[in-house]
């Protein structure tokens, strides 16, 4: 199996705090991998390092074998590494249609196009339609994003990341704040993404990922704690202990 995304000895210190502690991690091609851990384990810091929002203190990041450690965030996206945010990061004044259209036209190099009207290229239209249907957004396409129901906003968040046609998709707690009833549907949408997209799902809620992931990594205090199949991790008493807040031998 080939490796889609890899880190080697990744370290991030904020002053005295070691937010990421020597993390060497591999995401296999086509994987449905979950990264779980209690609150404050450093999961989001790890994502921010991967996407280039913050710079690591030490270590390297490889996307499909190429070193991307020094690359700016937007260049990483162009290389095929897209993400969603734990707290919705959308364009409140724009419509879902414009948001998806923006992502699609940026990816196809249309973002420098200042003379043609947005939406005058047929191949872009077809792709927008495909994405809108996949994420069940067709009925709200022309509404202002800030007026959308929360669940729809979460779907849009993923749709935009998917519109970047990523090779690797990082989802930072996509179901956070979504009502219980809609959560599994949302994750089912994610699970139904094409297999050539490798997905790393960050999640606090352990039970939610069991139906989704084929591999699980547990992070505690910025370091990798354990990794294994769903079966192995869910039955690991130490993992349960971490979640129950009991002291764990390092």
């Amino acid at each position: 199996m080939t490796i889609a995304l890899e880190t080697k000895g990744l370290v991030k210190r904020f002053g005295g705090l070691q937010a990421t502690d020597n993390v060497s991690f591999q995401l296999q091609q086509g994987a449905r991998h979950a990264l779980i851990g209690p609150n404050g384990a450093g999961k989001t810091t790890f994502i921010n390092l991967l996407t280039g929002v913050i710079k690591p203190t030490a270590g390297q990041i490889f996307l499909e074998g190429q070193d991307i450690t020094g690359l700016r965030p937007e260049l990483r996206v162009q290389r095929g590494l897209a993400r969603t945010f734990q707290i919705n990061q959308l364009f409140p004044a724009m419509t879902p249609l414009e948001t998806i259209g923006l992502a699609v036209s940026e990816r196809t190099g249309g973002g420098r196009d200042w003379w043609r009207v947005t939406g005058s290229r047929r191949e872009i239209i077809d792709e927008i339609v495909e994405i809108a249907q996949r994420f069940r957004l067709t009925d709200v396409l022309d509404e202002k994003t800030s007026n959308l129901a929360y669940g729809k906003q979460r779907l849009l968040e993923i749709a935009v990341a998917f519109a970047c046609r990523p090779r690797v998709l990082l989802l930072d707690e996509p179901a956070a704040g979504v009502p219980e009833a809609e959560r599994h549907e949302l994750l089912a949408t994610v699970a139904a993404l094409p297999r050539d997209v490798s997905v790393l799902l960050i999640e606090h809620d352990m039970d939610l990922v069991f139906s989704f992931a084929d591999r699980i990594t547990v992070m505690v205090n910025g370091a990798l704690f354990t990794e294994g199949t769903v079966e192995e991790v869910s039955t690991d008493p130490r993992v349960r202990a971490v979640y129950l807040g009991e002291s764990v031998d390092e």
């Binding site: 364009f91 004044a93 724009m94 948001t99 923006l102 036209s105 940026e106 200042w114």
Partner: peptide, 14 residues
């Protein structure tokens, strides 16, 4: 109203 203009609005928003 071009894709470039749309990208500017997106930058303004977020």
């Amino acid at each position: 109203v071009s894709p470039y203009g749309l990208s500017l609005r997106s930058i303004r928003d977020n």
